[in-house]
């Protein structure tokens, strides 16, 4: 700033310049605003339209679902589809509460264990110095560079060999070691000042004590984020690869079975689509600020 003043500009000229820029934001032309805003609106409509259709379809009575020309917006909203869904749910062979319980167990244990394991490993990787730390972390980064489909077949063999096929554990245990969680946790922990840890050590806290009383409370946004990401993964998993018993299958599976019933169940299927999409979106809405706070530290430095 001082540069301009030295170039023979008076202070009043300088402040004039600052104020005129600030009235409209710095470096923002009207044409550019219009262009980008227009683009945003067009793409925003494209993004949101299918979601709007899901909501409207869920509220449509049957005669509106099969109608030509098709209408996006519902004329006579009804909760018929949801009542249909409840009737179908209460008639299922395995009580529907069982599917809900399965989903709660799998995503509950999967999420809690993942947050705990990943934080416990992220702390020494961030704040301790020991041989192999770099190697381990670069392996985790490497694991984010390929998707789980690559390891699916050997994973199946390993889970069979461990004897946990067709149990909840087959879904829960692998999910504890996802790479993204450890990565985000470690990047977030980097910003905890070392002095905080030092002073806790001087007060006589052991490493587990430091972890539990100093680190964990300070990374709350990160564990909320991990929990949400993990929940989204487990929520959308039908478990069809590992779970064979009907009594173990999650809600996602049961809902898809209902939705697969063809034209006769088009209404209930629309209600299913609504429920399956609404739950993760609601979770994200509630935790949006924590998630964004965690993602600020997500950068890959090397």
């Amino acid at each position: 700033m001082a540069v301009k003043v030295q170039r023979g500009q008076t202070f009043s000229e300088y402040w004039e310049f600052r104020r005129s820029r600030r009235a409209r934001k710095l470096n923002r032309s009207r044409a550019g605003n219009a262009l980008l805003f227009g683009l945003m609106v067009i793409c925003g409509v494209f993004m949101v339209l299918p979601l709007v259709m899901i909501v409207n379809n869920a509220l449509k009575p049957p005669e509106e679902i099969f109608r030509f020309p098709p209408q996006i917006f519902v004329r006579n909203p009804t909760h018929e589809n949801f009542t249909d869904l409840f009737v179908l749910m209460s008639n299922s062979w395995v009580p529907f509460s069982r599917y809900i319980l399965n989903t709660l167990i799998i995503s509950g244990c999967g999420t809690a264990g993942h947050v705990l394991c990943a934080s416990l490993a992220a702390y020494p990787l961030t704040k301790h110095r020991f041989p192999g730390a770099k190697l381990l972390f670069s392996m985790v980064i490497l694991s984010m560079m390929f998707s789980w489909t690559v390891t699916q077949i050997p994973n199946y063999m390993i889970i069979s060999a461990l004897g946990i096929n067709n149990t909840y554990l087959a879904m829960i245990l692998p999910s504890w070691s996802y790479g993204l969680g450890l990565y985000l946790m470690k990047q977030f922990m980097e910003q905890i000042p070392d002095s905080l840890i030092e002073s806790a050590r001087l007060d006589g806290a052991g490493e587990l004590g430091v972890f539990w009383r100093i680190i964990m409370p300070n990374v709350k946004p990160a564990w909320l984020t991990l929990a949400i990401f993990q929940f989204q993964v487990l929520w959308s998993n039908t478990g069809s690869l590992f779970l064979r018993d009907e009594e173990l299958k999650p809600l996602q599976y049961a809902m898809q079975q209902i939705a697969a019933g063809g034209a006769a169940r088009a209404g209930a299927a629309a209600a299913v689509a609504f429920v399956l999409a609404a739950i993760p979106i609601t979770f994200f809405l509630v935790c949006q600020s924590s998630i964004l706070e965690t993602m600020t530290t997500s950068g890959l430095k090397e």
Binding site: C117, L120, P124, M139, S177, E207, F211
Partner: peptide
């Protein structure tokens, strides 16, 4: 440090590296 790493990396080894 290794003790704290153990639970995560044991699973990581079984379900990511080994596969």
């Amino acid at each position: 440090s290794y003790m704290m790493l153990a639970p995560y990396f044991a699973l990581f080894f079984f379900f990511t590296v080994l596969p």
